[in-house]
């Protein structure tokens, strides 16, 4: 990847939402989500790896980039903690 187009392309703002709270993260379209995850977890004060990220109902993998998912400026990323179910 050359640095030239990266500079040309505009950065996108991601709204990361967890439990009603919202944080803005500015990322490049080709940034891997692993980096974004770590940043979001840090902002919400969680250990890394605890969140699950979903974009428009689709699960986001660590290796994905915003560009892969056609994420546009201002789109929302949802964070979820692990869901469990059993009933005691």
């Amino acid at each position: 990847m050359s640095q030239e187009p990266e500079d040309v392309k505009p950065k996108i703002n991601l709204k990361v939402v967890y439990d009603g709270e919202e944080v803005q993260i500015k990322v490049k379209p080709n940034t891997k989500f692993a980096k974004i995850f770590a940043a979001a977890e840090q902002r919400f004060g969680k250990e890394s790896g605890t969140f699950k990220f979903v974009y428009e109902g689709k699960r986001i993998g660590k290796e994905d980039t915003p560009g892969d998912l056609d994420i546009e400026d201002g789109d929302q990323i949802d964070c979820f903690l692990e869901q469990l179910g059993g009933w005691q």
Binding site: E82, Q83, L84, G86
Partner: peptide, 10 residues
């Protein structure tokens, strides 16, 4: 005898 999480269900 273990609970399932969202990963399995999804």
């Amino acid at each position: 005898a273990l609970w399932l999480n969202d990963e399995i269900i999804n």
